[in-house]
Every structure is written in structure tokens, then in C-alpha cells.
């Protein structure tokens, strides 16, 4: 009897949390999904069904298409740079250096700072200055010409131009659509990546460092005895063992980049030609500035679906690992 009474208490203890998550996560997602199918386009809620019109409208909106481009580009560069720098630094730190604690703290402290603070500071550092005679920030520091180094204000998008040799080939094989500026890399976005990597690479470093230190020294020693070079040891022994960490880091960074909002708001807003616009900012402005709640909800649902594509398999995988363990 005693066991079952405790069982009841345990369920009562966790019930409020389950209920809260059920309502505030799943219930509200469902409600947002519903709003995305109604007219509601002024401050006054209007639940006239419109089917998928809101989705049609946002996918016909060039700004939203650029936002998706930006998200993809940002995610790729942000994850690649953070992983590379994090892994490099973890390996450096792991080499029994003097002042390890200090270096580690310097690398990790940006994590303690809000994206807003990061954005405010980097926005200033990355403002280019007006012309060759008046460089500012990084341009002044490194003696660069503001007219060609535009950082946050660079409106260029690098994409496959008609005069490029592959342009014709792509069109011939039916892949002409990827020669659009909407499939390209906006230069200004890379400045945001710089700030985001500054903030998040320490996190990756910590993950890898923990991973490196969990690898038994004997494993590496055995390889050394076999005459393997340090690089080969890293490549064939260490790195494979770090795979789960790499995956975890990719998911964490990936979902951050898909949701990124604060940092771009503080640094550049939409940026020149929407070069630094994000779905999150588009959603917020559509909804709370323009009063187009139905369309805003549609953007939110698209964001959710993209994130779910990344996260759900990971959660399932994580769960399996646990069951196996």
C-alpha cells in the first residue's frame, strides 16, 4: 500500500509541470496553427477561415524567401565556424598549457553575456565608416578601406551570376533556379556570424574539452606505440570518439541559429536589402507591428516545422541511446 501511496504523490508532484507543458507548449502551438488558417489581419481577432492563404502569402513574399536563405546560410557558417574554432581551442587547451584556467575563462565568458549586449558592442565595432578618409571600427584597426569593406552594411549577395561558367550548365540540366540571388550568401550576414561565433564557440570548446578529457590516455598511448603520428591519432582515434559531441553541438547551435532574433535586432535589424533579416524578425514585425496575426502565425509555424525537422530525430536518437545505456 505504501508504494502506491508514494506513486500517487509522485504523480501529483509532476502533474502540474506536465499540464503546464501540455498547455503552454503543445496547446499553444496548436492554437498558433489554428490562427495561421484564419483571416485575423487587424488588431481585432477575426477567426474567419481562409485555408492556406496565409501560407501562400508568405511564400509569395520575397522577404520571407530571403529570410529562409539567410537562415540556411547563417546556420551553415555559424555551425561550421563554431565547431572548427571550438575543436581547435579544445585541442590547444588540452595540451597542458600554463594558465589554462584563464584561457578557458576568456573563451567561455561571452556565453554569460546576452545577445543584446553582444549585438550592441559588435554593431559598433563593425560599423565601417563613411569612406577611405574616415574608416571606423575594424576598418580603422586593420587599415582597411570602408568603401570595399562594408561589414554589416554590405548589400552584396554572392550567387551564381549569368557570366559564370557553371551558369549555363546549371540551366541546361534544369537547375537554373539555383542561380537566383535567393540562393546565395549575403555578405552582411557574415558579420552577424562573426558575433554569434564569438559568443557561442566557447560553448563548443567546453563540450569538446570534456570529450577529450573523457578519452582514456591508454587509447592514444597504444596508437603512439604503434608509431602513429599525432595527426593520425586525432583523425582516427580521437575524432571518431567525439562524434556524439559533434552531433550534440550541431543540434544545439542549429536550433539557436534557426531561432536567432535578439542578436540581429541589436546589430542590424533587417539589414541592407534584408541581408540580415530573419524569419523571427519577420514574424514579429508582421504580427506585432503590422497587425497581420494570421500571417505572423504562419511564419511561426514554418519556423517550428524547420526546427522540428532538426530536433525531433535528435530527441528520438537521444532517447534510444539512453535506453541502450
Amino acid at each position: 500500500m505504501r508504494i502506491s501511496r508514494d506513486r500517487v504523490i509522485s504523480l501529483l508532484v509532476i502533474a502540474p509541470s506536465i499540464l503546464a507543458v501540455a498547455v503552454f507548449v503543445y496547446g499553444l502551438i496548436f492554437w498558433t496553427g489554428y490562427i495561421s488558417t484564419v483571416k485575423w489581419d487587424t488588431l481585432r481577432p477575426d477567426y474567419t477561415p481562409v485555408g492556406l492563404a496565409n501560407y501562400q502569402s508568405i511564400f509569395a513574399n520575397n522577404r520571407f524567401l530571403m529570410d529562409i536563405r539567410n537562415t540556411v546560410v547563417f546556420t551553415i557558417f555559424f555551425i561550421a565556424a563554431s565547431l572548427a574554432i571550438g575543436l581547435l581551442l579544445a585541442n590547444l587547451i588540452d595540451r597542458r598549457i600554463r594558465g589554462e584556467g584563464i584561457f578557458r575563462s576568456i573563451i567561455v565568458f561571452p556565453m554569460a553575456v546576452s545577445f543584446i549586449v553582444t549585438g550592441v558592442v559588435w554593431r559598433w565595432i563593425l560599423s565601417p565608416g563613411q569612406d577611405a578618409a574616415h574608416p571606423q571600427g575594424v576598418n580603422q584597426l586593420f587599415g582597411l578601406d570602408p568603401t570595399s569593406n562594408r561589414w554589416l552594411t554590405d548589400a552584396h549577395v554572392v550567387y551564381i551570376q549569368p557570366d559564370s561558367p557553371v551558369y549555363g550548365v546549371l540551366h541546361d540540366i534544369g537547375l537554373g533556379f539555383i542561380t537566383s540571388p535567393n540562393i546565395g550568401v549575403p555578405i552582411a550576414l557574415l558579420s552577424i556570424v562573426l558575433a554569434a561565433v564569438w559568443q557561442m564557440s566557447g560553448f563548443v570548446m567546453i563540450l569538446y574539452l570534456a570529450g577529450l578529457r573523457a578519452i582514456p590516455e591508454e587509447l592514444k598511448e597504444a596508437a603512439r606505440v604503434d608509431g602513429a603520428t599525432e595527426w593520425r591519432i586525432f583523425r582516427h582515434v580521437v575524432f571518431p570518439l567525439l562524434t556524439p559531441i559533434t552531433l550534440s553541438a550541431m543540434i544545439i547551435l542549429g536550433h539557436i541559429s534557426l531561432k536567432i532574433y535578439d542578436l540581429t535586432v541589436a546589430m542590424s535589424g533587417s539589414g541592407p536589402g534584408f541581408a540580415t533579416d530573419t524569419p523571427a524578425l519577420f514574424m514579429w514585425q508582421t504580427t506585432f507591428r503590422d497587425g497581420e496575426f494570421g500571417r505572423g502565425a504562419a511564419v511561426a509555424i514554418v519556423m517550428l516545422v524547420i526546427v522540428a525537422f532538426v530536433v525531433v530525430p535528435y530527441l528520438v536518437w537521444n532517447r534510444r541511446q539512453e535506453v541502450e545505456a
Binding site: P128, Q130, T147, W151, L152, T153
Partner: peptide, 9 residues
């Protein structure tokens, strides 16, 4: 064509 190049910042 006659505005400052850093207008967007």
C-alpha cells in the same frame, strides 16, 4: 548614387 556608402549602418 550620391549618398554616403555607410547609410545602412
Amino acid at each position: 548614387g550620391y549618398v554616403n556608402s555607410d547609410h545602412s549602418s
